[in-house]
Amino acid sequence: MTLPWARAARSWALAATVVAAGMLVLPCAQAQDRTSPFRAADTPADRAMTETVWGLLQNSRWLANGADKAPRTVYVFTDPNCPYCNKFWSDARPWVDAGKVQLRHVIVGILTPTSPGKAAALLTSKNPAATLADYERGQVAATAKALASGRPHPLGDEGIQPLATIPPAIQAQLDANEQIMAALALRATPAVVWRDARGGLQMRTGVPEQTLAAIMGPR
């Protein structure tokens, strides 16, 4: 079993590799709600970069939602206070429930002052993946109402109470996840990373409903 601090150190090292390779090319205006300019994995350099980033994500602290044998894996940087993360979780149900996609939630705590404590509470629960699923499910109705009103707000604490003190090992995991997010120039949640039908790496922040099929593939 990989120790938490070793896993975090490996993620930081991979993130440094990505930064050194010059991947920090997206200005903020491009990164927000836009698809990244990654090409399909056509050349050896493209394929090497894709595998480096994919390895970075595989070694991050993520929570699975969906079947392990699902034909498509989608990584999503998720803040437990993010209403748009909750909407994405809800919108993804048809693909996840059908066994077509496994979401891997890379947990970060960046949105509000209680986000780190809630992220830590989630990661220290007895079954973090189940806790996340229950929490997201319980917030869907309130989030839909808030978004429809045009007044989005952070998710409530029902289901996850923020920790006052974050254990060092958990803080290291959260720091490593945030480092990966920064290395990939992803500046908002949900930030989604996936491989397209050609194996090319794709990324975007924000998930409008019209892009779901491109990210998730066939239902």
Score class of each variant (00 low, 15 high):
V106L: 07
S125G: 03
P113V: 03
M49L: 09
D196T: 05
L122E: 01
A191D: 01
I215N: 01
R151C: 02
T50A: 13
G66N: 09
I170T: 14
K69W: 06
W95V: 10
E51V: 03
C28L: 13
F77N: 07
D91S: 07
P218T: 02
T189P: 00
P162V: 07
T17R: 09
A41D: 13
A144M: 13
T2H: 03
Y84L: 14
S149H: 04
A13S: 12
D175M: 11
R61H: 13
G156K: 12
A141R: 13
T114V: 11
C28V: 08
Q202V: 08
N65P: 01
Q179C: 03
M23D: 08
A9G: 07
N59F: 11
T35F: 15
L155Q: 07
A121S: 08
V19M: 12
N177K: 05
W54H: 07
E136P: 00
D46R: 05
V19N: 06
Q210V: 04
L174V: 04
S11G: 08
Q58F: 00
G66Q: 09
Q171S: 12
G206A: 10
V106I: 15
T50G: 03
L212P: 05
A164E: 15
T112W: 06
P27S: 09
R104T: 01
G109W: 01
A67E: 09
A213K: 14
I170W: 01
L174G: 04
I180A: 11
N81C: 09
G206Y: 06
T205A: 10
T73V: 15
Y75A: 00
T17A: 14
S60L: 05
T211D: 11
V76F: 05
T165E: 15
P27A: 10
G156P: 07
G99S: 02
T78Q: 10
R39Q: 10
A119Q: 01
G99W: 15
P37L: 10
A41Q: 14
V193E: 00
A9F: 03
Y135N: 01
R151W: 05
R47E: 12
L184C: 03
T165K: 15
E51Q: 10
I215L: 09
R219H: 06
V18W: 00
A142K: 11
L201C: 03
G109V: 01
R61T: 06
P162C: 06
S115W: 01
P4W: 04
A9N: 04
A148P: 04
L3S: 12
A146G: 10
E136H: 10
P168M: 07
